[in-house]
Design a protein around this nucleic acid. Structure first.
Lengths: 213, 213
DNA sequence: TGTACATCAGTGAACGCGCGTTCACTGATGTAC
DNA sequence: TGTACATCAGTGAACGCGCGTTCACTGATGTAC
């Protein structure tokens, strides 16, 4: 929390209330799930009166979808960093991408559940929808690069592949990837499970065409 | 709704309030998600006073986890019926299993979200946990039968395989399998996507060892 | 540099609402004899 | 078959609570001159 200036009780103007409300929402979502957060409680967390949030968000839903959109922005950035334009090679970078997917779900469960489990409508929230598409496109682009390493004759449809990888990653993340009491126990780590699954899937597609040195 | 006897205003005793509350909960979950249902509203739906549900459930959470447990029981039965002890052959039955998974998620979204998205703790609800395990065990048994068709040398770990299939199915179901505004659009049906994914995955494992006639 | 004023962000009190929960109660049902 | 009684399931009124939302307001900030 940043006070406008120095110490003591905070100034009349908060200075950064919008960001503080987002952080409060994340904290509350992390504690009680996407349903267990209220506008009033977020205001209390930020140390302002219950009427203050209305200066920044129309209602609870707008705050919620703003959190989810920010989550997708961060997710996209993390995935893009992990992919690193396919360096040093597509297979290595692709594996890193999967690990980063699960890492995000584990380290940012509040963002993750806002993004996927809060039931935010894609139709009425185009910004949220677009942010999600941008994140997916990182995975799609990576898949495209991976497919490009295959002989032209055997290339599978990129979109389908990306959807399979996404669904497997999301399935593992939501069933096993969180540390809470609602996740089932596993005989291996979620990362190992995902890595093995992707490897087998790619092998089914005929990848890698040339084994790495 | 079954009245105790004949028509007219219902008798003082409801006769089947517990079941009526479960149905009301399902209806409300279907309409507004697992968070958007209250004890009071379920009572109103069932046509009884707000105090009546307390005769059957300790609190809202107990009703919720009862719904989720019943969901897993139905899910298990549906999967078992689909598997049909591997008839006529393991591959065919396995494919049917996947379709049934998605069909359940689509036709019973309220049960499905109570089972997987309501955040019910596995530790404090052993009956719910066991019901989930029983459903998973149908998939696990089917995987085992499928693996048994492979030469003994190349058999992959059954548990891992079953977890991969489950995660892929759940991922597809939760990302694309519901008709609501929160699901993303697909260039193909969820069923086709799952079927193709499982086929490629199995091919990566070396299945089918003998192509079907 | 100072002053007047517009704009902005947060206040605090108030409201109606529905929820969860409790309580003593009452009407219906089942059963022992 | 009838009667007395125990048990059970639902009533309805009440409570305190926190939420969402509104309102006229006020204190702080920025800017024109």
């Amino acid at each position: 929390m940043t006070w406008k200036r120095g110490s003591g009780p905070r100034a009349y103007h908060h200075g950064n209330l919008k960001e503080a409300l987002v952080r409060a929402a994340l904290e509350l979502i992390a504690q009680k799930g996407p349903a267990g957060f209220t506008f009033a409680e977020a205001a209390r967390w930020a140390g302002v009166s219950p009427a203050a949030p209305y200066r920044h968000f129309r209602d609870r839903d707008e705050l919620m979808s703003d959190v989810a959109r920010r989550g997708f922005d961060l997710f996209e950035a993390a995935l893009r960093r992990a992919w690193d334009e396919g360096r040093p090679d597509a297979a290595t970078a692709f594996d890193r991408l999967g690990k980063t997917y699960l890492e995000f779900a584990r380290k940012e469960p509040a963002y993750y559940s806002a993004m996927f489990e809060a039931g935010i409508s894609l139709e009425t929230n185009p910004e949220f929808c677009d942010a999600g598409d941008r994140a997916f496109n990182v995975l799609r682009g990576a898949t495209e690069a991976l497919v490009a390493t295959m002989p032209a004759r055997q290339r599978p449809p990129v979109m389908m592949m990306a959807l399979h990888i996404w669904a497997l990653s999301h399935g593992i993340a939501s069933l096993f990837g969180r540390g809470d009491a609602a996740s089932r126990k596993l005989p291996m780590s979620a990362e190992e499970l995902l890595e093995a699954g992707v490897l087998l899937y790619l092998r089914g597609l005929g990848l890698p065409p040339q084994p790495k040195p």
